[in-house]
Design a protein around this nucleic acid. Structure first.
Lengths: 161, 161
DNA sequence: TGAATGTATTTGCCTTGACAATTATAGTTT
DNA sequence: AAACTATAATTGTCAAGGCAAATACATTCA
């Protein structure tokens, strides 16, 4: 009788709890540890950035000046949420909303000098440190493979073929 | 000059965007696809459960009757959030708050018959289907390895040694 | 015993993100 | 050009989770 379950009777105490966590649970835990670690690392450098804001700066640096919608897609964030994050990042002085030359509906989000500096001198360095910590028990080829597995799983989930 | 970045000058357009996503980003995407897929799968079976609620039922079934705090730890959820999820799951008739025999502060959270049935006949089946889809491009040994990598990365992040 | 301290659950408050509606502007069709 | 339709950004609303009280017991220590 697999998956059995004794309803209310006195039962043997939870044996181990060290049941291997499922892949879903592991993904949740790994991601949240990584986020926590990165935010802590940045905080320890005096940089007050959420993981989301970190991702936005990263993409803004990588992509150059793009619209808010493109940026939202790049970090997989809802447009409404993006608006509010942009408000905050603009208040912090890390980026700027410039008008788009051809399309008066759209914006060009560009990093300020301060934003670019923060990214390059602090945020990206913190990220590197955290990634090193996270993957320190994987050798180079295992890291590659891990990355590859993640990509394949993502593809499998998205291809409803 | 690594990681260079041209501040405000006219710059070459974003070349590809198909930059390989970072591990952090991949984890975020894989997890959120998995959650979406599972919730959709359950919805298609007429079962209205969030991923969090799914996890709670799963652990409640696995661990048997435990306190709310233990359950919260098991699913990595804040106690306050747990209280509210328990409210919902109790309203849906899937579990019950019973008093703890020895400790009058604490609860014993137990699945109702309906809850156990839902878990075994529907939720766990949906989960199995989604996990199969997700990992269909990994063979058995790769799945094991993937799981192993996730555990090692988690450990590395948690061991501040 | 009585006081201090610790723990389980609940509640209030705040932030975040998803979703839907709104506004302004583009693009398309007739 | 006028009428539709599509798109960019913003705003309002809501549910969820984190954190910090608050409450009710338990446990420990003097």
């Amino acid at each position: 009788m697999p998956g059995m379950h004794s309803p209310a009777a006195p039962k043997d105490p939870p044996i181990d709890d060290a049941q291997a966590p499922s892949v879903g649970m592991l993904l949740t835990m790994v991601r949240s540890e990584m986020v926590r670690a990165l935010e802590a690392e940045m905080a320890s450098e005096g940089l007050d950035l959420s993981f989301t804001q970190f991702m936005i700066l990263k993409k803004a640096d990588l992509l150059g000046a793009v619209s808010a919608t493109e940026l939202a897609r790049a970090v997989e964030l809802d447009c409404g949420a993006m608006t509010r994050q942009l408000d905050q990042l603009e208040r912090k002085g890390y980026l700027r909303r410039a008008p788009h030359a051809q399309d008066r509906r759209a914006l060009r989000i560009e990093l300020t000098d301060a934003g670019a500096a923060i990214w390059q001198n602090t945020a990206s360095v913190c990220s590197q440190r955290v990634m090193n910590t996270a993957q320190r028990s994987l050798d180079k080829s295992e890291q590659t493979q891990f990355h590859d597995y993640l990509e394949r799983v993502l593809l499998a989930l998205r291809d409803k073929s």
